Simulated assay, not measured.
Amino acid sequence: MQTSLSQEWYKFRHQKGPLMGILALLSLMFIMAISVPVTRTAIITGFKTPQWLLMIIVIIGANFMIMEDQHTTIRTLLYRHTYRWSIYLAKLLILTLYTGVLTTLSLLFTVLLKTTLASQLSWQSERLFSHLVVGMAGTCLVGILLLTIILLLSCLFPVNTVVICLGLILIFTGQGIASLTIGSSSPILVNILKWQPLNMLNLMAQLPDPSYQKDTYLSNLQLLAGIIGYSGFFLAIGYWRFKHKRV
């Protein structure tokens, strides 16, 4: 496992994409901060951090997973390793670490932007800082769930443009589809549909704003349990497909 981690980390840090992703995230946050009034809501959401961060994760994750298929180097990699699980898990761990780095940097940059552009707003007012932190934590958790889905999609469709498109559709429509299907269902179906994986994406919005519970029909702990459960499920299915993929 340590060998796989070292190899995947070497490949990851020698790509241009991860650094470009960091620069793109900070640039987009800055543009949002100077183009609209800096309100409490803007600060809590980290100047649209969830949207930008998840988009970057999808693009970086898909490219990192599929690049070896495109360059046919996956054959050499798999032939050298007896246990494919170490390769698959190492890729997930590297991408999870990158997600944590993006989250931390966006949190620190939000603090800097708020201090510079909206010093009149107090961190103690309506627990502004705590809401920001829990919102970022929720985004990070949703990002990890999204990574397990992206790795699965990469094994099913080894074309990065296809996986990126599917990932972006999931980001922009997932929460809306979940709310629509739950809200228009009978009470019996609601008890089933509220546990769909798309509904778990709402954790990043519900943590700082409990009013979302009327739409998700789940508590924060239930959403967290759902994210953990579905992450494990998609991880297992993705590894099974990776294990049996032909090279």
Score class of each variant (00 low, 15 high):
residue 207 L to E: 02
residue 136 M to W: 10
residue 179 S to F: 15
residue 161 T to M: 14
residue 93 L to Q: 12
residue 145 L to E: 07
residue 193 L to A: 07
residue 197 P to S: 02
residue 128 L to K: 01
residue 163 V to K: 10
residue 142 V to F: 00
residue 127 R to Y: 11
residue 122 S to G: 02
residue 194 K to R: 15
residue 204 M to A: 11
residue 154 S to Q: 07
residue 160 N to R: 14
residue 128 L to Q: 02
residue 188 I to M: 14
residue 102 L to Y: 06
residue 97 L to E: 00
residue 156 L to G: 01
residue 195 W to F: 14
residue 208 P to V: 05
residue 114 K to L: 04
residue 96 T to P: 02
residue 176 G to M: 10
residue 119 S to Q: 09
residue 106 S to M: 09
residue 187 P to A: 11
residue 183 G to E: 07
residue 139 T to D: 10
residue 135 G to A: 10
residue 134 V to R: 11
residue 135 G to K: 04
residue 158 P to F: 10
residue 192 I to Y: 14
residue 136 M to Y: 11
residue 170 L to Q: 13
residue 209 D to S: 03
residue 107 L to I: 14
residue 204 M to Y: 04
residue 159 V to T: 09
residue 126 E to W: 07
residue 111 V to M: 15
residue 206 Q to R: 01
residue 213 Q to I: 10
residue 158 P to S: 09
residue 214 K to C: 04
residue 188 I to V: 13
residue 151 L to N: 07
residue 213 Q to K: 11
residue 199 N to W: 04
residue 197 P to G: 03
residue 125 S to M: 08
residue 152 L to C: 10
residue 99 T to F: 06
residue 163 V to Y: 13
residue 215 D to Q: 15
residue 179 S to A: 14
residue 212 Y to T: 08
residue 190 V to P: 04
residue 213 Q to A: 14
residue 111 V to F: 15
residue 152 L to M: 12
residue 109 F to A: 03
residue 193 L to K: 11
residue 197 P to V: 09
residue 144 I to D: 01
residue 135 G to Y: 02
residue 97 L to D: 00
residue 148 T to Q: 06
residue 203 L to Y: 08
residue 192 I to A: 14
residue 168 L to T: 07
residue 127 R to C: 00
residue 108 L to V: 14
residue 199 N to G: 00
residue 149 I to Y: 09
residue 107 L to N: 00
residue 156 L to H: 01
residue 199 N to C: 02
residue 168 L to M: 14
residue 173 T to L: 15
residue 130 S to W: 13
residue 185 S to H: 07
residue 200 M to A: 12
residue 161 T to E: 15
residue 209 D to F: 09
residue 113 L to S: 09
residue 161 T to Q: 13
residue 107 L to A: 09
residue 204 M to R: 12
residue 157 F to P: 05
residue 163 V to I: 13
residue 169 I to Y: 12
residue 158 P to Q: 07
residue 186 S to R: 09
residue 102 L to A: 07
residue 193 L to V: 08
residue 120 Q to T: 12
residue 211 S to Y: 10
residue 153 L to I: 07
residue 144 I to G: 03
residue 168 L to P: 05
residue 128 L to P: 00
residue 123 W to S: 02
residue 208 P to C: 01
residue 99 T to I: 14
residue 115 T to N: 12
residue 202 N to P: 00
residue 205 A to G: 01
residue 201 L to A: 03
residue 105 L to R: 06
residue 100 G to A: 03
residue 191 N to Y: 00
residue 191 N to H: 08
residue 136 M to D: 01
residue 209 D to E: 10
residue 133 V to T: 09
residue 114 K to W: 06
residue 185 S to Q: 03
residue 95 L to Y: 05
residue 171 I to G: 04
residue 209 D to T: 01
residue 104 T to L: 15
residue 133 V to H: 05
residue 196 Q to F: 11
residue 201 L to G: 04
residue 146 L to E: 08
residue 180 L to H: 10
residue 176 G to H: 04
